[in-house]
Design a protein around this nucleic acid. Structure first.
Length: 119
DNA sequence: AGTATGACGTTTT
DNA sequence: AAAAACGCCATAC
């Protein structure tokens, strides 16, 4: 339950007009490998806790929902707050990814992953 | 204690 | 470039 609560806080902290990846939310919630749990949290609580679920996208900078299963709505919600989403659901992470204060850059994260893997 | 479940992510074909 | 194969892990049951 601990991770779940932290994940919800992180998601609620994503500002309007910005997006975060599943892995990014997981990392900020304390476990950079728990992206799939973020998905579960969204399923379980996005409605109940009014989470800005549409601001969470995958690491390739794209909407993961399938067409007819939420894709259109997510695209609409993001567009409404100024995030540019193309017809394939792709978003420029360089431009719209949330970078909270004190967060590590992607380059740093990559370095730390490689370090932990013993390179 | 297993087993299933994911709106995932990275590496390898 | 695209798809498959791995790897991953908190919860529910």
């Amino acid at each position: 339950m601990e991770f779940e609560d932290r994940a919800k806080s992180v998601i609620k902290a994503i500002p309007r007009g910005r997006v975060a990846t599943y892995a990014q939310v997981a990392a900020l919630a304390g476990n950079h490998r728990a992206a799939r749990q973020v998905v579960r949290v969204l399923h379980a609580s996005s409605a109940k806790d009014r989470l800005p679920w549409h601001r969470v996208i995958n690491s390739r900078g794209g909407i993961s929902l399938e067409r007819g299963r939420g894709f259109e709505e997510q695209k609409r919600l993001l567009s409404r707050e100024g995030v540019r989403v193309d017809d394939n659901g792709r978003i420029e992470l360089d431009e719209f990814q949330w970078e909270p204060e004190g967060s590590r850059s992607q380059a740093e994260m990559k370095f730390l992953r490689e370090l932990g893997r013993g390179k």
